[in-house]
């Protein structure tokens, strides 16, 4: 079994004449959690959308578990193997929490109802959504609960990797914790994840590698302590200074 589950090679994306992604290269190992940080407009979100082919890259290859997915035409089959968690949750508004999880299992994975039900319940419980919430509609749930249902929807599909697009930035501060907690647990249990986030604490504690993106390209990468605490380049230094200011922490303070 190859240890690299995802390989991104020489990836480019243009919108008209504007370059959104410029020669992106990286690999993700099985069980790895990779955090991407960077200012808005850096192309982080587009990169994630390219990986599960919601956006078609213009050049380059993406290899998922030995399969060159950029050359595949049955994109929906690929997408069913890649989980995606959105900033604004994007739960299906017309379906209850459990039906949101069931939809993919029944319509994409074609599981029999009982089996799908079992897996949906398991997924919901694993993110701390208990039975009394299963029959609620998204609008009746808190932001944190909605995002955890969205994570359950992703993990129930038994994906090879889950992509998180700023999963906590639409949440009230006190709800952020419950979502990060679920993500940390997922990572510890060996799920492969790419997380675009500004949560430095999460990055330091959970990430195996952090990549700093700016201007559509990866500027610097390395272990979280190095990137977040001792960055080298000028741009990243300035960015990290601001981030730590917002995080109310001094860069020199020791982080366990």
């Amino acid at each position: 079994m190859e240890s690299n589950i995802l390989v991104v090679e020489n990836l480019w994306k243009f919108y008209g004449r504007e370059v959104i992604l410029k020669n992106i290269n990286f690999t993700v190992k099985r069980g790895e959690t990779k955090v991407i940080i960077g200012p808005s407009g850096a192309g982080k979100s587009t990169l994630l959308r390219c990986i599960n082919l919601l956006v078609r890259p213009d050049r380059g290859r993406i290899i998922l578990d030995g399969d060159v997915i950029t050359e595949r035409r049955d994109v929906h089959n690929i997408r069913s193997q890649i989980g995606f968690v959105f900033q604004h949750f994007n739960l299906f508004n017309h379906l209850t929490a459990i039906d949101n999880v069931l939809l993919g299992l029944i319509k994409v994975k074609k599981l029999p109802r009982e089996e799908a039900m079992r897996r949906a319940k398991e997924a919901l419980l694993s993110v701390g959504i208990t039975e009394e919430l299963w029959r609620k509609y998204p609008a009746q749930l808190s932001g944190g609960q909605q995002q955890r249902v969205a994570i359950a929807r992703a993990i129930a599909m038994d994906p090879k990797i889950i992509l998180f697009d700023e999963p906590t930035s639409a949440l009230d501060p006190e709800l952020i914790w419950e979502v990060l907690n679920v993500m940390e647990k997922l990572s510890r249990n060996g799920m492969t994840m790419i997380v675009v986030t500004h949560e430095l604490g999460f990055a330091i504690k959970v990430a195996h590698e952090v990549m700093f993106m700016d201007g559509g390209t990866i500027i610097e990468r390395g272990p979280p302590n190095q990137i977040l605490l001792n960055p080298k380049g000028e741009r990243i230094k300035r960015f990290m200074d601001r981030m730590w200011y917002l995080y109310s922490l001094n860069r020199s303070s020791k982080v366990a």
Binding site: V75, R79, F86, N90
Partner: peptide
């Protein structure tokens, strides 16, 4: 967003 989410879980068009 709803449509994007539908594609993201692997539903066909």
């Amino acid at each position: 967003k709803q449509i994007e989410a539908a594609y993201a879980i692997g539903l066909t068009k």
